[in-house]
Design a protein around this nucleic acid. Sequence first.
DNA 1: TTTATATTTAAATATTTGTTTAACTATTTA
DNA 2: TAAATAGTTAAACAAATATTTAAATATAAA
Lengths: 95, 95
Amino acid sequence: MDIVFKAINDPTRREILRFLTHGPQNAGTIAQQFNMSKPSISHHLDLLKQAQLVDFSKKGQFLVYTLNKSGFETIHTWFQPFTLFFELPKPKIRL
Amino acid sequence: MDIVFKAINDPTRREILRFLTHGPQNAGTIAQQFNMSKPSISHHLDLLKQAQLVDFSKKGQFLVYTLNKSGFETIHTWFQPFTLFFELPKPKIRL
DNA sequence: TTTATATTTAAATATTTGTTTAACTATTTA
DNA sequence: TAAATAGTTAAACAAATATTTAAATATAAA
């Protein structure tokens, strides 16, 4: 659980997640969006992977990253009691 | 925005937030829940305050902390696009 | 094969973070 | 007023983090 919160703490990683809502992307394509070295992005992707916020599959020489529902469910589960407390509009994620 | 994610990154701070769903609590009462020095808890409360996840008011010699909706709304707003993403129909087979 | 491309892993480093002890401020009680 | 209580602020430091450059791995193209 800790790893998910660690993962979304970094602004670059949050941008990567946002970028992936547009669909699956190669590591290189993701790296291009940021003024940052590839190893740094690779490190961020690794952390997002550990948090199960992204997943990847190998397509030839490319690694294609996608959003992974599991990590987001973890966040949702943590957040739920507070939405009840405040009666915030409920996130519509399907569990 | 960054400060909110920083705030919820720490497990002690997440426990404090959870504890406050039971209602307003004095700093001292909060500190008692944790095997940790008061200054450390005070520091965590300060960060939660900066993130607008908690608020406090002075009652005599006591500081009474409560949950603050603002910070949670920030999290909710950030989370929303991902809930929408996972509601979309499953990706179709590529032709 | 050899070379180029895509990406990760490793090593090094500066910055940030969480914790503690000690000192300080404010309020209550005797 | 003096002493006790509630809590914060300050200083110091070890541990964790994000970044970079350089080296390594794997696949594709020539």
